[in-house]
Measured scan of single mutants.
Amino acid sequence: MLDDRARMEAAKKEKVEQILAEFQLQEEDLKKVMRRMQKEMDRGLRLETHEEASVKMLPTYVRSTPEGSEVGDFLSLDLGGTNFRVMLVKVGEGEEGQWSVKTKHQMYSIPEDAMTGTAEMLFDYISECISDFLDKHQMKHKKLPLGFTFSFPVRHEDIDKGILLNWTKGFKASGAEGNNVVGLLRDAIKRRGDFEMDVVAMVNDTVATMISCYYEDHQCEVGMIVGTGCNACYMEEMQNVELVEGDEGRMCVNTEWGAFGDSGELDEFLLEYDRLVDESSANPGQQLYEKLIGGKYMGELVRLVLLRLVDENLLFHGEASEQLRTRGAFETRFVSQVESDTGDRKQIYNILSTLGLRPSTTDCDIVRRACESVSTRAAHMCSAGLAGVINRMRESRSEDVMRITVGVDGSVYKLHPSFKERFHASVRRLTPSCEITFIESEEGSGRGAALVSAVACKKACMLGQ
């Protein structure tokens, strides 16, 4: 009897593995994704193909990295998701002549009506938060230079001027797309009239992360975010950046690689679950690469896999709870928690219980395998993109072996128990001629924006502006 049951459990697990095998990517698959990513990057950089390229390769006008001589107080704003952060950054000489960066910050959550109302409502709310922060720190009387981390696709015309191309991540505030974001912020500050600010720089969160990590390690020339969304930036040779005049030196390019796949480059790798996630998203047909990796989508992918296993009578005796059938019910943090389970399955059992399920031991094991399959594919897909960037940098610099540091931020990278190990191992397999160091950014977005502002202020002083 026991043997029969054991055989049935083994057969069930084997069927589960057959279904989950769809998520496995072979090294040849990853090399294919990497080569296609490089081709799209090239198209994004070139003037004649930029418009139709899915990977936009947006110039950021960040050319210099901090040298350690900029000092002063800077205000930093960070808008990239449902939370908005205001930070005071003091850049100065530390002990023994070292450079020191001290920060104080406060988080504000953005109400739904500000995210989806008008641009005026959104930026009025942001300036209200700045006003509140300055009151708390008794700094209303000071006109501070301000660095703005704005983590949406922007076409820069200068370091302090950028046109919002399109909202992502659930934002829909009308009247912002096609307009200068810094102008919208300046107008809102003017409307309030109770404080003055000098907006000197606007950067993407990947750029802010790279600059913040450069402060720790001067070989950091790539910034990457794996959180709600997924994106990367890197220092490109100016001669390859056709959208900006000049051939000397390097400029940081914001790849906006989340949109890779929007022209069909990933079609052969998309599964039924991916198509369902895409169809029910706020932007169907867009940001397809990001939807395979980002935390906004990972939990939902797992939920759809679990429903398939229920329908195949391989999980929960073929019956799903009402909660499990509800879109968004299986949160991405559950994926991390399930994979963090120590082996007694308590954590998995508790999560499934909150979803109205009474799982068996085998159910718990199957749910864990589903989570591992989805998150491992995410790590491997992400590795193909980064390997594409790094191999490109090595080739354009004609280096036999390139040493490089990548600064990384984002909740999936930082909080998932195995993502970074799987990701690092896969990147290294795909970049055999590179020695890569990964560092995690601390308060990256805010500190990085302030350091970019410090560079901009120093330049302005040198130019006598």
Rank of each mutant, 00 (worst) to 15 (best):
R7S: 14
A10M: 15
Q18R: 10
A21H: 09
L45F: 03
H50S: 05
E51F: 12
V55T: 03
L58K: 08
Y61E: 00
T65Q: 10
E67Y: 08
G68D: 07
G68C: 05
D78T: 06
G81C: 15
K90A: 01
G94H: 02
E95M: 09
T103I: 08
Q106F: 10
T118N: 06
M121D: 11
I126Y: 15
C129M: 02
S131H: 03
L144S: 10
T149A: 08
F150R: 15
V154I: 12
D160S: 11
I163K: 12
T168G: 11
K172Q: 03
G175E: 04
E177C: 12
G178C: 14
V182A: 12
R191F: 06
D194E: 14
M202E: 06
T206D: 01
T209D: 01
I211G: 00
C213G: 03
D217M: 04
Q219P: 03
E221R: 05
I225A: 01
G229F: 11
G229S: 11
C230Y: 07
E236M: 01
E237V: 04
E237M: 11
M238N: 00
E242V: 00
L243F: 01
G249A: 01
M251W: 02
N254L: 07
W257S: 02
W257D: 00
S263A: 09
S281H: 15
P284D: 15
G294R: 06
K296P: 15
Y297R: 14
V302W: 04
R303H: 11
L304Y: 09
L304I: 11
L306S: 05
L306Y: 00
L309T: 06
L315R: 00
L315H: 03
A320G: 08
S321A: 10
R325E: 02
G328W: 07
E331C: 15
T332E: 12
T332S: 09
E339M: 01
S340P: 02
D341V: 01
D341E: 03
Y349R: 04
T354K: 11
S360R: 02
C364N: 07
D365S: 05
T376H: 07
C382S: 06
M402Q: 09
G407I: 02
S411D: 09
L415F: 06
P432G: 14
S433H: 12
S441C: 06
E443G: 10
L451N: 11
V455F: 09
A460E: 10
